[in-house]
Structures are given as C-alpha cells and as structure tokens.
Write a protein that binds this DNA or RNA. Structure first.
Lengths: 347, 347
DNA sequence: TTGAAAGCGCTAACAA
DNA sequence: TTGTTAGCGCTTTCAA
C-alpha cells in the first residue's frame, strides 16, 4: 500500500469530484450518474491501476468484506475441504478469509478471537468451539454474526451446520450388529467437543435401541482425535475393558491408532477384532485393512455454513435455522467383518 | 464491530484526552507518560473490553498487521504444515494471515492478489508462483514485501525459501543406481512450477553425472502433481517409453498414481519396478508398498519464509538472502529395491 | 507530561 | 446529475 492510487488521484485525472468517482465505481452507479462519466471514470481507474482501500471503506461502512474462520488445526485433513467449501461461496463475492488455528486451546481461542475482532471481520465461521464458550457469546452479543460448522455450542441462538453424527453411529452399530457382533466397544473423542460428546451419546442410544448391554469400561474416552490417543485407548480397552469383538471409533485417526495397537499385540483386524472409523479422510482406501467408516461431507459443511453466514450478514433479521444437519453415509470396506466365535479379552 | 469500545470511550471514562489514551496503550508509553496515568488508562481499557480497531490504525499508519498467503490448494497435504510454520512466527506477534488458494490458475491468482492488495497486507508469502508472473513483480514494485516459499520466480530480487530439490533427486537417483538400476525413468511435474522444472532438470543432471543414458521418452511430463496424472504418465511410460526397472517420481502423489497403474497392469512394485516419491506426505508409511521418498520440511519452509518476510517488513533496507535452501533427506522404505534381471518393456 | 488538531481514504447525507 | 461536507477510529506532530 505504499504508493497506491486513490480516489483522489482518479478524481484529479478525470476532472470530477472524489465522491463522483466513488459513485461511478460503485455497483449502482447507473441510478445517479451519466453513462459518459461512468465510463470515463472507470476507464481512468482501470488504466491507473486503482484498487479500492478496504481499510478506509470498512472504517466508514463497518463492512470489511472479510470473514474469520476458526478451526482447531488445518493439519487435520477434515478441515482443508471445509475451508475450500467456505471459500467457494464467499470468494466470488469478494470476501477474504482470515484463518486461525486454535489447537482446541481456550487461551489461544480467546487471543485469536481478538485478532479477528480487531480486524472487524463481518462474520465468523467457527469450527473449533468447545461446548461452552462465553467469549463467543460475547462476540455474538457485540453484533458479529457467527455460524458454527462441524460442531455446535451448548448455548442456543447460534446457527450450527453439522453432520448427522448420531445417524452415522447408528448406521455403523447396526452394520456391526448385523454381522453378528454383540460385544462392541467404543473409543470416544474429547468430551468438550460436540462431535466427541454427540457420537458417544449416540453410541449409547443406538446400543440401547438394539438391546445391547454395555458393561463397565466398554467406552474408552480420549482427549484428542488422533492416532496416539486411539492407540492408548485400544490398549486400555484390551487390558482393562470387557471382552469384545469390535471397536466403533469416533474418528478415522482414532481407528488407525487402535488398529496399530492391536497389531502390536498380534491381534488381527478384522479377523479377530473389527474396527470402524468416522469421517472418511483422504487416502483411507489405500491403507490396509481398508477402513470401514462413515463419510461426512466437509466441503458441504463449509459451503452451507458460508451461505448461512452470508444470509445473516446481509440481513440480520433473517430467520435462520438453528441447526442444519447434513447427511452422512456408510462406507463399507474391509476393517469390519463378521464377528469371530470368541471375543478378545484380557485373559 | 457494531458497538465496539473506542479510544474516545476510554478517554471519557478516564478523563484524559484520546491521544493520551492512545499513548498509554502503546508499547513505549513509559517514555512519555506518568506511571499513574498509564495504569489508570490500561485498567479502564481492560475493564471496558477495549479492542483496538486495526482498520483505523492501519489507515493511519499503513501497517495492517496482516499478511497474505497464496498457496495452490490447502487440500494438498504439503501446505497445511507450511501454513502452521508461518503462523508459528507471525501469530505471536499479533499478525493475522489471509490465506487464498490459487489452484495454479493465473486468473484466480490475479483476482486473489487484488483481494490482498485491497486489504493492504503488510507482506505476502507466495507459495503458488508460476515461474513467470508479472503481477507479482507489480506488487513488489508497489512496495509490498514478498517472499516465495517452496518455489521461486524466474525474476530475481524476490527472496525464495526452497527445499534442496536437486539434492533430493540426486540422493534418490544414486540410491537407485547403487541398487543396480540402470534403466530409470522419471515422471516430472508441471513445467510452469519451479519444483516441477527443477526436479526434472536435476534428474537429467544426476543421470548424466552417473553416465546413465536417457533414451527418448524416458521422461513423462504431467500437468498436475496428483494421482491421476501419475497414473496417466505411468501408462505412457509403459506403453510408449523405453524399457525400465525404476520410476523416479517428482512427487508422492504422482508415485501413488503410478503404482496404481502398474498394479492394474499386473506389474508389481517393487518386485518388477521400483518407484520413488518426493515430499513425504503424512500417512505414507501406512500405505503399501511403503513409499521410499525424499522428505522435505514444509513447516520449516513456512517458518523461515515468515522470518524473512518479517525482516523485510520491519526494515526494507535489510539485506536478505536471495535464496534460502532447506535440507532434505532420503526416507528409505519399501517401494525401491534391488533391480530385477529384466526390465519392464512395451513388448 | 498532556492536549489540540490534522488527516489517512472512503462513503453518505445534504445541497445545489 | 454532481459537488460539499463531515466523520469513521486512530496516530502523530506541534504546542503548551
């Protein structure tokens, strides 16, 4: 922005007033200006390489044409497609996105929320919410539209776009059940993330619906959605849990970690224990045993979130669905198969 | 930014002038203000939830504390770590990053460059350059610092942070040679990307250095760095190329695609043909045959680029290395093995 | 040590 | 249909 061309420069060049230039360059120039002036100004602007200064216009109008996106970690393969989904609707309209990674750390989240506030973002797509988050409530109260993507807040009034986690778990558990599994365990994600909590509850509900008994220790909780946590949880299940023939995992990476642990113990998946994932991250079909999982649509989650946000940003009074649920589907591959005769147990 | 607290509000609350508040909140308040005033103002600001308006300060100072990052596609697993590397140095200093995906499309790149310019970013980290790009030269000429990451421009004067591609290719070719391979082919990346071009040239140089003859058709070019392109290129090599015992690929995804084609033709990797990758993207060690590849350090590339950019942004006169080359290393896994007796050939 | 005042580039009443 | 004017929130020179 050193020696940028400003409205004033274009005005001087064309011999009209700055405000006339401003109008001529605006979208509804034709309501108020001569065709002749419009073309003259626009030509000059183009020729001179004029680029509007959004800082200045934003300061004046309170619209920065910039949105914030808070995600846990762009390194997690679920999020890049979401980012592109958001971009697919916002970018053609001239919006830019500031992306921040919270690492699911509250302090970081607060700092980053301020970074976004300082820049006066027109709205925030929040894919990293902890279930309870007063800071976000404050931002909303302050007037900035927020949509949560891939997760939802405990507090209502904030639109959420989520995948049908409960249905995904339901599908998977029934699939396992129909293959003869009766002793099914669960590796759950972090409880402070809505996906972790919802998937765990859905597992319990679906098990109940099938009349399946869940003994103590059938559910192993984790503090992260990654391979290491899956590894530890599987170890815990094998060493301290009930006998089982299948593990339904709350995410693909948990499943990968679990399978890795089982292999290290000489337990074969799927011959001895079936293991399922959730999300269907890329390349999964290349890794043996090819993971049977639940496919979510991260790009769609991003796209729909952005559309919703756009709607609220454009017309704050617009009614907006509290929760938009996107469908999921069962992806049958190799890691879940018919139940073996004897479960794996501690003994 | 609806009802945000401003300097004026804090001034009214504390009974001092706005400029005093501005000074009290600034970094070198102690040079000029009473300790008493400083604490009184800072307390009030904190209590009232004051957040500085960067639009206003940026308009005034020409510093937005925001940088732009142009990458081809965040969905490509090489880039998320790079983004985090950049973030690791810039975010603690209060910078935000606007990330845009060019998809290697010139028109998109121009549009997105404007999106960044409009927002007055203090600098740009460009990881998506085509070799020749007048638009970028224009941005640099205009006074915005630019650093290219993971790629370099044909035009000089713009600092580049790159991996030691040539050495990586060299390492891999020698490794293959030492395993007895003499008929080695290459699947090259897009020529308009520096990594594609450099790796291809390095292959030719290294082959020459070993006294290896490269017959016509030993190098298959692609237009993208993805599996589909690798698949097609391998097909071309098998159907129209010279006999060979190994394929050195310019990227992991090209290699994955190539192996997939070979498998479809009943050609086993590595028993019949050795195949190598480049980059060492995540999860590669889980996919059989585990790819022997060259590891680059995307996080480091991002980190160093950001440090360089910071340096130029802070002091434009600072001398800055034209090219920073980061080391690579050979990752030996299973996809490259001793050369078989007879090469794969068209017949 | 603090206050006053100007101005960054833009938009939007209001006037003409 | 075009020009004038004020002001968004902040920094910074100048004056006191």
């Amino acid at each position: 922005m050193r020696n940028a061309v400003t409205l004033k420069d274009v005005a001087r060049e064309t011999g009209v007033h700055v405000s006339t230039v401003s109008r001529a360059l605006g979208p509804n120039a034709h309501n108020t200006l001569t065709e002749q002036v419009i073309t003259r100004v626009r030509d000059a602007a183009a020729r001179m390489g004029y680029v509007p200064n959004r800082l200045a216009s934003g300061l004046r109008t309170n619209r920065t044409m910039t949105v914030g996106m808070m995600i846990p970690d762009i390194t997690n393969p679920v999020f890049p497609p979401m980012v592109r989904g958001v971009e697919s609707v916002l970018e053609p309209l001239g919006y830019a996105s500031i992306i921040v990674n919270t690492d699911n750390l509250v302090e970081r989240e607060h700092r980053l929320a301020d970074i976004l506030r300082e820049r006066g973002v027109d709205g925030i797509i929040h894919a990293a919410v902890l279930r309870h988050d007063p800071r976000i409530d404050a931002i909303v109260a302050q007037g900035t539209p927020v949509v949560t993507a891939n997760c939802s807040l405990a507090s209502p009034d904030i639109p959420a776009v989520v995948s049908d986690d409960a249905h995904g778990i339901h599908l998977m558990l029934h699939y396992m059940y129909n293959l003869g599994h009766r002793a099914i365990t669960h590796i759950a994600g972090p409880e402070e993330l809505s996906s972790g909590q919802i998937r765990r509850k859905a597992f319990i509900d679906a098990a109940e619906g099938l009349g399946l008994h869940l003994p103590d220790g059938a559910i192993a909780r984790t503090d992260r959605f990654d391979e290491a946590a899956g590894h530890r949880a599987a170890q815990h299940l094998v060493q301290a849990g009930p006998p089982f023939t299948a593990i339904l995992c709350a995410s693909d990476r948990l499943a990968l970690g679990a399978i890795d642990y089982l292999r290290s113990r000489g337990i074969d998946c799927p011959a001895q224990v079936s293991v399922s994932g959730f999300n269907d991250i890329p390349m999964l079909d290349l890794i043996p045993p090819r993971l049977t999982t639940v496919r979510i649509q991260p790009f769609e989650v991003g796209r729909v979130s952005a559309q919703l946000l756009l709607q609220i940003m454009t017309d704050k009074t617009a009614a907006c669905p509290r929760e938009t649920v996107l469908p999921v589907s069962l992806v049958v591959r190799d890691s879940v198969t018919v139940a073996p005769d004897r479960p794996v147990s501690t003994a």
